[in-house]
Simulated assay, not measured.
Amino acid sequence: MSDFKTVKTVIFDTSDSGMLSTKLAAVNNNVRFAILDILRDFEKSNKAEDGTFKKEPLYSRELNAILLNNYNINITTQMLGQHLKQLVGAEFIEEIVVKKEVPNKIGRRSVKGFILKEDAFEDLFLDVSFLSDELLTFFDLYESNHRFHDGKHCVLTIFNGVDKGKTFKIHKEETVLIGRKANFNANDLASFTILLDNSYSTVSNVSKPHLKLFYKEDGWYIIDEGSSNGTYIADKKVPIGVATKLKANSFLKLSKGNGSAVLYCSF
Rank of each mutant, 00 (worst) to 15 (best):
S250G: 12
T175R: 03
V111F: 02
P239W: 10
I158S: 01
K216G: 07
D133N: 14
D197N: 13
N145T: 10
Y264N: 13
G18N: 15
I35M: 01
L124K: 03
N249T: 14
V98K: 08
N70S: 11
I158R: 06
N72F: 10
D37K: 09
F267E: 12
A48G: 12
D127T: 05
V27D: 00
I233N: 04
V176Q: 00
L39V: 05
A243K: 09
S207Y: 10
K54S: 07
T137V: 14
N28E: 12
Y215S: 02
I73M: 03
D188K: 02
L135W: 07
E91A: 11
L20T: 15
Y142C: 15
L24I: 15
F12E: 05
L246K: 05
R108Q: 11
T193S: 12
N72S: 13
V203Q: 05
S132M: 11
Y232H: 07
F139P: 15
S2L: 13
R180W: 01
E62V: 05
I158H: 03
A34M: 07
E101R: 12
I158C: 01
S201N: 13
K152P: 04
T137Y: 15
G107M: 04
L135G: 09
A243T: 08
A186W: 10
K256L: 13
L84Q: 09
T231L: 01
I73W: 01
N249L: 08
L252E: 02
P57F: 02
H149F: 11
L36D: 05
I38S: 01
D188Q: 04
I106W: 09
S60C: 06
I170F: 03
L213N: 04
F114Y: 04
Y264D: 11
T157R: 02
L24N: 15
L67Q: 04
H83L: 08
I170S: 00
L116W: 00
L263W: 08
F138E: 12
F251P: 08
K55W: 00
L246R: 07
K105Q: 13
G51W: 03
S60D: 11
L126I: 08
K85G: 12
A25S: 15
P209G: 06
E134W: 12
D133P: 07
H153Q: 05
N70H: 02
Q78F: 14
S201Y: 09
F138M: 15
V98G: 07
L246I: 03
Q78P: 10
L141M: 15
L126S: 06
S266C: 13
D3S: 13
V206Q: 07
K23L: 07
E143M: 15
T167R: 10
L124A: 06
I11M: 10
R40G: 04
Y264K: 09
N69H: 08
E225N: 01
G18E: 12
Y215Q: 07
F138P: 11
N187M: 11
F184R: 02
I115A: 02
N185I: 00
S228N: 11
N187L: 09
D150K: 02
L87N: 08
N185G: 10
E173K: 06
V206N: 06
I194E: 04
Q78S: 13
A34W: 05
N249Y: 13
R109K: 14
S2D: 14
I38E: 05
I73C: 00
V111H: 01
V27N: 04
K8D: 14
K5L: 13
F138D: 10
K47Q: 10
L20K: 10
V238F: 11
K54Y: 07
R180E: 03
D16W: 14
K112L: 03
I75N: 03
D133H: 12
V162R: 08
L141R: 15
